[in-house]
């Protein structure tokens, strides 16, 4: 059906959750840091993704309004960077590094183990909404290859054997150090994750 054209002009422009006032306030707090409002784009997207789990079409529109840009400009940026998800992701996102050092040390096996264990492929989410999986170019932890990130936390020298324990561990994404809440969702806001 490659001759068919996708209808972009009447595609729904309000898909997914929007940003709450608290989140918008959090984004506005970045304005004094930069000369232009547009420069707040990346922080705003980080905050939005933290708050609602991904960047929905409606969130892009909200951010465009905040930054006084056409919404297409936000879409442009969102699709350029690999960290932003445009569809809902699981509670925990497993990121496997696939660069040379990690692959030499067995990232392939790790990836295969995750894919078979969870039954999902790159950028997919388990039906229960618990896990999403993606591969990432170099995570800059080549000395600990192969490495696996669970949300914010880096797990080093992960073998397929450790995977069960890691998946069962509820705290596998908790950071061992005090967090800065600069990019976090405002207090009390729970990300709506999963399908």
């Amino acid at each position: 059906m490659s001759w068919q054209a996708i209808d972009r002009k009447s595609a729904p422009a309000d898909e997914g959750p929007g940003l709450s006032d608290a989140v918008k306030e959090k984004i506005r707090a970045f304005f004094p840091r930069y000369e232009t409002k547009r420069a707040v784009m990346l922080p705003a997207l980080h905050v939005a993704q933290e708050a609602i789990g991904y960047i929905s079409v409606r969130a892009m529109k909200d951010i465009a309004e905040l930054l006084e840009l056409p919404p297409s400009a936000v879409m442009d940026v969102v699709t350029f960077y690999t960290h932003y998800w445009t569809h809902p992701r699981g509670e925990k996102v497993l990121m496997v590094c696939r660069s040379l050092s990690c692959q030499l040390m067995g990232a392939d096996k790790l990836q295969h183990a995750i894919e078979t264990k969870l039954g999902i492929k790159d950028h997919e989410t388990t039906p229960d909404g618990k896990f999403s999986f993606m591969t990432e170019e170099c995570l800059a932890a080549c000395d600990h290859a192969p490495c696996l990130m669970v949300n914010e936390r880096m797990h080093k020298r992960v073998t397929p054997e450790q995977l069960d324990k890691l998946l069962a561990d509820a705290d596998s994404d908790k950071l061992p150090m005090p967090r800065s809440d600069l990019y976090d969702a405002p207090h009390g806001e729970k990300p709506a994750r999963g399908h």
Partner: peptide, 29 residues
């Protein structure tokens, strides 16, 4: 002097100095 951290979002080319600047300005890198 003020000092802020600006977090990137996964693009190798933003390590190029002008790509970095574009990204900081809120554009594609």
């Amino acid at each position: 002097m003020e000092c802020y951290i600006h977090r990137g979002a996964g693009a190798y080319v933003c390590g190029e100095e002008t790509g970095l600047i574009e990204s900081l300005e809120g554009k594609r890198g």
